[in-house]
Amino acid sequence: MLIDFIQQIFNGLVVGSIYTLIALGLTTIFGIFGIAHFAHGSVAMFGGYLTYFLISALGIGLLPSFILAMAAGALLGIVLERVAYYPVRNAPPINSFIIALGLTLIIEKLNLLAFGVDQVIIPTPLVNVINVGGVTMPELRIYVLAIAAILVIGMTLLIQRTWIGMAVRAVAQNRAAAVLMGINVNSVSMFVFALSSALGVAAGVLVGALFAVAPGVSSGLVIKGFAVLILGGLGSIPGAIVGGMLLGVSEAFAAAFVSSAYKDVISFLLMILVLLVRPEGLMRRSSR
């Protein structure tokens, strides 16, 4: 029983780490622009497809492909910001909302056109399984957890310890004051989109290696990402980390101890509960 309990926590953390990566991108973009960037899941899938293409068609190694895809994701993020969101930055919020919906469709269909309808699994050489006292941990899942952890820590350091990170936080706190302090809001917004999209691509690659990249996966990811945002608090980075892990583990527990048919229902019940009891999210101070 204890072994199963620990196994379920491990199962949940692996999936939760992917939710966290998705949510981090969503939450930073939301924190700065107040945009619900629905196309984020499609950007993630684009990254998964691209990595697969680099590996299978061009014969590039897994790690270089991963890094190249993240770079391409960052570039795509900048293009999206410039072409889609920048022109409506001063318009009513409904404009960017509709643009977000349109972008989702456009990127999703472009993925279909470029990469086809078949599901794609990113090949990895990681097939070993480590058994610790009955708890089985496939190598690939350990790598997924580790890569997610490195990216999350890297992102936190970037936001907390660097000049550009400080600028991002300043714009999130008070845009007008940040402008007055001489921060170039344009470059901050491009930076945020680049960073978020690169993280999204990383999530897409991990999903592609662990499960599969396929049409329809992106909408599921983005829904889970927003659920994490509500759990952790909109715009909160620690909230995205805690919320992602919490969602992953609660889904695993729901399937294990309640019913697999209600797995998704229970995670959304949790979300509703948070909205009722602590609407600002688990990790945000209510004063703001």
Partner: peptide, 20 residues
């Protein structure tokens, strides 16, 4: 009887339960 939905690809939670 454990189930999964049309888009699910992670059955580890259900399988862990069945293993138990």
């Amino acid at each position: 009887i454990e189930t999964f939905g049309g888009q699910d690809r992670d059955m580890t939670a259900q399988l862990t339960k069945l293993r138990g």
